[in-house]
């Protein structure tokens, strides 16, 4: 009879986070980056301004979260897509947003470090 290879070593146990996927996130910061707070703030200000209803917002966000990773980053990317889609149905087109995004990107690239970034600086 041959000896079976040794199986000693690490016990095969799931990491604690896998056992407690929710509780392990209990202390996570609500916002990991400034844009996440800004995106949510814009959405809430637009609900309050009546640009779209709270229910439209919930429906749009609900659809968007299903398309993103189940993480804090994924959640706020969903906030952003939901916002863009609702605005595209209303006061802003996606082309306008894209153009403005590109203008900001040019402004950032044209602005020396340490100087305030102004849209007028976009070449």
């Amino acid at each position: 009879m041959t000896k079976s290879p040794s199986t000693c070593g690490r016990a095969i146990l799931p990491a604690p986070d896998a056992l407690h996927p929710l509780a392990s996130r209990d202390g996570d910061p609500v916002f990991a980056e400034a844009w996440q707070a800004q995106g949510l703030a814009l959405a809430d200000c637009l609900v309050r301004a009546g640009v779209f209803s709270a229910d439209d917002w919930a429906q749009s966000l609900g659809a968007a979260v299903r398309e993103q990773a189940d993480t804090t980053e994924g959640y706020y990317l969903a906030v952003l897509s939901a916002l863009e889609r609702l605005l595209d149905d209303g006061p802003l087109t996606s082309d306008q947003i894209k153009e403005r995004r590109d203008a900001w990107a040019r402004a950032y690239e044209a602005t020396p470090h340490g100087m305030p970034v102004e849209l007028e600086n976009a070449p």
Binding site: E33, W35, L42, L92, I97, R101
Partner: peptide
């Protein structure tokens, strides 16, 4: 470059357009 992350640029684009249109303060 010192470009902000892509979602930050998109948020900035949206906010600046909404402010211009008077839809958010």
């Amino acid at each position: 470059s010192h470009l902000p992350p892509e979602p930050a640029l998109r948020v900035k684009a949206i906010e600046s357009l909404l402010v211009e249109k008077g839809l958010v303060d």
